[in-house]
Write a protein that binds this DNA or RNA. Structure first.
Lengths: 207, 207, 207, 207
DNA sequence: GATGAATGAGGATTCATTCAT
DNA sequence: CATGAATGAATCCTCATTCAT
């Protein structure tokens, strides 16, 4: 798990003892476990501490308050998910548009599935901390990557405002993937879904 | 305010006297006012009762618990919004696709704006009660209407699975409208947004 | 059901309409039904009124408060039980002691069984109203009856203080019957129980 | 005060620090004091906390809910009473039946008097929590002790089923003692009461 | 570094009872 | 006689956070 609670640890002795990192991780993981099994309403600091096997006092040594624990959880998972997705997308940068889009959607579905809880379920059962950490972040992970990609294919494109196009596609793709995974489409296979959605994007984008 | 909390109020009394309906409405409206000004976290039953000018006992005479008040609010507004949108769409049923889609998106933006708080802001600051009342319901209000519309234009269409196509378009349109209204697109006018989004849909849909 | 809520009805028109008596009974019976099925904690005036099919307003026409409803229930059942028991005991007044006691215990068990709920269960789950209406009353129903009976058999008796003897026997008999019915004695038949208990009494009483 | 709420407190913390035990005791004692002076109906958690000189939060640190406080009180007192009685009875094990019974009844009266409130008054003014802690437990404390005692005197006894005999005597003795202390017998001294009640038992038991 | 006892403001909910219609 | 809307004091309980040890 990535380093969290930075402000606190920054001004403390550099080598965050391994023990400390272990404690820190176990707190965040306990929070995740409780969130998954009992829901946000049951997430209390005392409960987290108990599951993590530390005292509340200790918990408050590592985190200034409850929200920061959840934020640490989300940040960590979103960071991982983004990194994973970005690295996979890089492998596709050389592919033509008609190959890139279906592949990208497949990867997105795959990442959403892997981090389903934090990315898809959690946002639904908790009041937003600030502005949609998870969705926002994961939503636009593709943006910068794709902007570069599209710029390389300018000649093939029929759209003029690339930024607007990316905005529209980002929203269309992510919301459809989320809905597909969350509500499902009884009669439709994943293959059909990917084909049709990427078809929509490619037709929109190309001449 | 329209009659609300009817089926649900099996546990609580249904308004039999005129006085009752007035009280009931004022409770729901107070909840909405508090939600708008102070946010979900400040929505307490005592506060609602106070603003509504009734006793806390009266509040519980009409609603079994706090959640049901919010649910009544959402249901009422979503019902109104849907009805409004549906009636406007009916006027467009005779139009060709290239006219229908931009018009529809404009209407959707307009309805979202009118019911902005309950439809767009509220879902972001409260934990979901059961299934996403607002989004889900507003998301698919267009579905049945549009399915009929599209069936009349089958010959012009390039898509085969109409249900899948509607699923994709519903998500693409609603999520883009919501994001457009919520986050905005600094450089883009509403007209451009509507053009581009409807362009995406029409290109996808037609031969 | 016997007339209850006397104070109220005394100064009202004499002929308590049948309708009124029906309403009154249905209130008391509703209370009993709720008590049996949901327990004392669930006995609310609104609930009673609802089950009885009358408004709370009406309920408060017949009873000054909730306790009086329960009291009416208990009084009615205890009155019936006592009357029933007394009439059965009268038939035994001519019998010798060795016949009287077993017979009396059998009758007591039978009456307790018939009015089990109000006489045995109810006292256990509700705070006492005044001093143990039910137990007290049923406990001493035998007293006066038996005092007369014993006086007729003075010559056979070995006890001197008849009142004390009756006190001891009353308690011994009623508590044993209640415990026998309530907790049971796995290995013991009712016949053995009656034999042994009356044996204890008879031996104590006679020379 | 003896350690209480130990097994039960799985949900709540067990006192690890000395401070904790003191707090715990003061909560239970406050509950007892309120119960004695104001009655069960006035026993509120806030009141208990106030009298105990702790915050309401602390109270809930030690007990999961109000009932458990009362249960802890009852359990503690019943445990003490039983232990006390048992130890006194052991001193009588060598005595003949005609000495044992009056002595035992005297001891029982004495213990009942010492713990009068929890053992005699409290059960009458509160709804039962689960199964009658107090009565049941105190009722049968004598059972095992006495069974052994009687087995040593088999040759003197006229009864065959010892278990049944003990059941009958337990109920007869405890109910009479409770009634004697609770309702009283105006004309009768304790000595006469004890004599007569033990007389009943001895006559029943011996040849 | 760690502990866990203590805090207490605050919130949801209940229910006997009244009274205007 | 009947209705049922309205009352509101009162109660139980939660939980993030602090701080003395």
């Amino acid at each position: 798990m990535a380093r969290v609670a930075k402000e606190k640890s920054a001004d403390r002795k550099r080598p965050l003892q391994e023990r400390a990192q272990v404690t820190l991780d176990s707190i965040v993981e306990s929070a995740e476990r409780i969130l998954q099994t009992k829901g946000y309403a049951s997430l209390t600091t005392n409960h987290i501490a108990e599951v993590a096997g530390v005292s509340i006092g200790t918990l408050y040594h590592y985190f200034p308050n409850k929200d920061m624990i959840v934020q640490a959880l989300i940040e960590d998972r979103v960071t991982r998910a983004s990194a994973q997705l970005r690295s996979r997308l890089l492998d596709l940068m050389g592919e033509p548009i008609a190959v890139m889009f279906p592949a990208m959607i497949r990867e997105l579905l795959s990442v959403y599935r892997e981090y389903e809880f934090v990315l898809l379920r959690l946002p639904n059962e908790m009041p937003r901390l600030e502005d949609q950490q998870s969705r926002l972040t994961t939503e636009h992970f593709t943006f910068s990557t794709n902007l570069n990609y599209l710029k390389q294919h300018t000649t093939e494109l029929s759209v003029e405002d690339l930024e607007l196009a990316l905005f529209l596609m980002d929203n269309a793709i992510t919301s459809n993937c989320i809905q597909f995974l969350t509500r499902g489409l009884p009669e439709t296979s994943e293959a059909s879904f990917v084909d049709e959605l990427s078809g929509m994007m490619v037709r929109y984008l190309t001449k």
